[in-house]
């Protein structure tokens, strides 16, 4: 099935004002009606927790109320509806999308994708021995910058049974497992993207079921760190990072949020096709990142000022 990836995450929250300001400071654009978009039109929607248009909440009270996947075309949408109707209700919504609930109880939507094709350069670097990417006299970094999230990358769920989750997404929706942490869960990509993962499942006790974090792709590691630094300077609190994951190779920086989940910037994720063989490694700090950095206020090595007679 030609599912491309998540188009929209819909949240039902207590504090709409804080969540709105958070997403604006994170770098998404407000397009009205509580919708906030990245450069390619993917995004996040914020509604009041008791908004009657939202799918029913999980018993755990997770603020994530719906994950809407973008698919390539109407034929794919029809195929998903036909598949899921075999054993569950599939609602046809007025906007042409369909809605169903997965085997864990998460509400899912599917629509012909809203993603716009981006035509933007990736971060470029110069290195000895390689053709220079950036070119002569092109500056690599500015003191001030506000890099924008480009595209909704992935969502991570806490689930009580990762094997059940993996089976549903693999067998019913055609997702492919790219890598896994033993006893924790799989990283998966739908067939319509080469990204290492658009979803990762983490095994937890049932009372934790919900969203762990969501992430937008940035243009490169410098943008991850620049955008994260801007968040720190606005008073937001880092949860984890900056650093670089091992599985997926994506640079990361996570921040806590008023959504009751973490929100990440990432960049430079590995791409895979069907030639890839999934790895399985032990979970834990040593395998969760290649390295972990830590934010520190700006600083410089300085000697004492020159003596007056020099």
């Amino acid at each position: 099935m030609n599912i491309i990836g998540p188009d929209t995450l819909i949240f039902g929250v207590d504090d709409i004002d804080s969540c709105t300001q958070y997403l604006l400071d994170y770098g998404l654009e407000s397009v009205g009606n509580g919708r906030f978009e990245a450069l390619d039109g993917t995004g996040v929607e914020v509604k009041a927790k008791d908004d009657t248009s939202l799918p029913a909440p999980l018993e755990t009270g997770s603020t994530l109320r719906k994950t809407i996947y973008g698919v390539a075309d109407q034929a794919t949408l029809d195929a998903i509806a036909e598949e899921l109707k075999k054993d569950r209700e599939v609602k046809q919504l007025d906007d042409g999308s369909i809605e169903a609930v997965d085997d864990m109880g998460f509400a899912l939507g599917f629509q012909v994708t809203v993603r716009k094709t981006l035509n933007l350069p990736a971060e470029t670097i110069n290195a000895p021995g390689a053709d220079n990417q950036r070119g002569l006299n092109v500056i690599g970094v500015e003191k001030e910058a506000s890099p924008k999230p480009r595209s909704l990358s992935h969502v991570v769920y806490f689930v009580p049974d990762f094997a059940k989750a993996e089976a549903f997404y693999a067998e019913r929706l055609g997702f492919i497992t790219t890598d896994r942490f033993h006893g924790v869960g799989p990283f998966m990509r739908p067939a319509g993207t080469q990204d290492h993962h658009t979803v990762f499942f983490i095994q937890t006790p049932p009372h934790m079921q919900g969203i762990e974090h969501f992430t937008f792709h940035m243009g490169g590691p410098t943008e991850v760190v620049h955008a994260g630094t801007n968040m720190v300077n606005k008073g937001y609190q880092s949860f984890w990072g900056p650093g670089r994951h091992l599985l997926g190779s994506n640079w990361f920086w996570y921040f806590k949020s008023p959504f009751g989940c973490n929100v990440e910037y990432d960049a430079d994720m590995d791409l895979h096709n069907d030639d890839w063989t999934a790895r399985a490694i032990a979970p834990g700090a040593d395998n969760s990142q290649a390295f972990l950095l830590q934010f520190r206020e700006k600083w410089a090595p300085m000697g004492p000022p020159p003596a007056a007679d020099q």
Binding site: D14, D15, S18, Y236, Q237, S257, P258, C261
Partner: peptide
Amino acid sequence: WRKDEYLDPWGGTIVCAAHG
């Protein structure tokens, strides 16, 4: 999630913003 944001919007409970 931001300095001093320890309480829910109604001030009824302490909240950890990482996982709610």
